[in-house]
């Protein structure tokens, strides 16, 4: 397994484009997080400090940072898609197989690399959130700090799921740009399915349940939007805004199932294909 990750890392890290993209996808959310945590003084008129809004309080900070950081996954998605696309356009996939890499090892080396980078991203966010939280949070008891750290697990699964989807599209279409375009197509298709389900089932709640089984929606569901929750904490009287923002085991299970299906299909595809 280490050998396969090592192999893929060499392919990735010697290319300047990839380094820039990896840098953006990991360092940018980190910097944004740190920037938003410092006190910004607008020319002496007023100071803005997001920390005072309470968004850096434990345990809500886990929810907020993972939600926003997950938007930066698109940069690494480009890396994932191009690491397959380039293998096809350079025909190095063929040479790799001739040199004695099995088709299974080829897919696994990509998949393990996805896990590796998702893990790095999760650890970075965890560490950053932890220290910013320690600095700003009004509560610093261990029991409160480590409450809701399941958002980190959800974040990790979300990244792995999304990148595995990219991997599958890239394997299917062989070209990076098409694969990225297909993500957008899938997004539209999921809304079409929602619309279809709405017409059949008659309620948007039921239709969303159907959509929740689809790849993109199931990944989005892992970490629900935190805005409503912020409102509730600010204005406790607005109880009608209450919603279920927790990470549920079945949400994780659906995404895990998708990951397994997508890796399996990628492998099946490569095995069937004549290169």
């Amino acid at each position: 397994m280490l050998r396969l990750v090592n192999l893929e890392l060499q392919k990735l890290l010697l290319s300047r484009t990839n380094i820039i993209l990896i840098f953006i996808s990991f360092i940018l959310p980190f910097t944004v997080l740190i920037l938003s945590s410092i006190k910004i003084n607008f020319f002496g008129f007023f100071t803005m400090e997001l920390g005072e809004l309470g968004i850096f309080n434990f345990p809500i900070i886990w929810h907020i940072t993972t939600f926003f950081a997950s938007y930066f996954k698109f940069f690494f998605a480009i890396v994932v898609v191009s690491m397959i696309g380039n293998e096809y356009s350079n025909k190095t996939i063929k040479q790799n197989l001739i040199d004695g890499l099995s088709k299974k090892e080829f897919i696994l080396s990509k998949f393990y690399t996805i896990i590796f980078f998702s893990l790095v991203a999760t650890v970075l966010i965890a560490v950053a959130s932890f220290f910013i939280g320690l600095y700003y949070s009004s509560y610093t008891e261990a029991s409160i700090i480590f409450r809701e750290t399941e958002f980190l697990l959800a974040y990790f699964i979300k990244l792995v799921g999304f990148f595995t989807l990219c991997l599958f599209f890239a394997m299917l279409l062989k070209r990076s740009a098409f694969a990225l375009a297909f993500l957008f197509v899938l997004y539209i298709v999921e809304w079409l399915i929602y619309w279809g389900a709405y017409n059949i089932l008659g309620s948007s709640e039921a239709a969303f349940k159907v959509k929740g089984f689809l790849p993109l929606e199931s990944m989005y569901n892992l970490i629900d939007q935190p805005f409503q929750r912020l409102m509730i904490t600010k204005f406790p009287d607005k109880a009608d805004l209450a919603y279920d923002y927790a990470v549920h085991w079945y949400e994780i299970a659906i995404v895990l199932a998708w990951i397994a299906i997508l890796v399996f299909l990628s492998l099946k595809l490569l095995k069937k294909r004549d290169l």
Binding site: N86, N90, Q95, L97, G100
Partner: peptide, 14 residues
């Protein structure tokens, strides 16, 4: 294939 050396068609490298 680890005991074989092969190149087919064009040289394929990164």
């Amino acid at each position: 294939l680890k005991k074989v050396g092969a190149i087919i068609e064009r040289p394929n490298f990164y």
